[in-house]
Amino acid sequence: MPFDFTVIARNLDYLLWGRTASGEIGGLLLTVAMAVESGIIALVLGIALALVAWRWSGWVRRILLALADLVRGVPLIFVIFWIYFLIPALFGSSVPNSRSVVIALAWFSSAAVLYSTLSGLLAIPRGQYEAGIASGLGPGRVLWSILLPQAIRNLIPSFIGLFVSLIKDTSLAFIVNVPELTYVSSQVNNRTQVYPTEIFLFAGVVYYLLCEGLTLAANSLASASRRTGKTAAKSR
């Protein structure tokens, strides 16, 4: 069976932007928007929780880590279902589906951010904390301006990794009819009926290029900053 890739060209606008022109964001643009939005929420939430878990190392930390385990131990698709059904049940009115997916993704990823940020904070040599408080800084200030910047610098690769999985995980929004890249691809497929290989190959390649490009950019950024000394190779 010969392949006919002109179907891609004919539907390219729809695959990339969905109905964005008429006010309903969709396609690849929605995929990226959802990943960015949930990524930012997860980053802020996860780091905030990690700071709390670092500062109160007793039962507060244990409870937070147990919760994070719980969140990570459930398949993402269930979290999406829960939130999809839970939010209308709790608040009566329904929220846009893409919203509930963003919340699910953020919720899921913030657990991962919490984990890696906390381990990044704990990996910093104890002398750093001591040098900070011995200078007269309070524990909160040491955490915020001495430990966290160092931890984040070491964690950037793992954050990029998380963001790449986020991009891929947005395709699960397909289940609840959010018109992101996977969903619009299947729409195009349903409409045209005869080109499933071409269409899903294209979608797959777009995901791949996006994720791979991001990884490459992150790597070269990391090695560039190492060269200019923005990343501390070793601590003194």
Binding site: A131, G132, S135, A232, S235
Partner: peptide, 12 residues
């Protein structure tokens, strides 16, 4: 003032 061997400086 406090000076220690090794890890005292802030690397970032």
């Amino acid at each position: 003032g406090y000076v220690i061997q090794g890890v005292g400086l802030f690397p970032h």
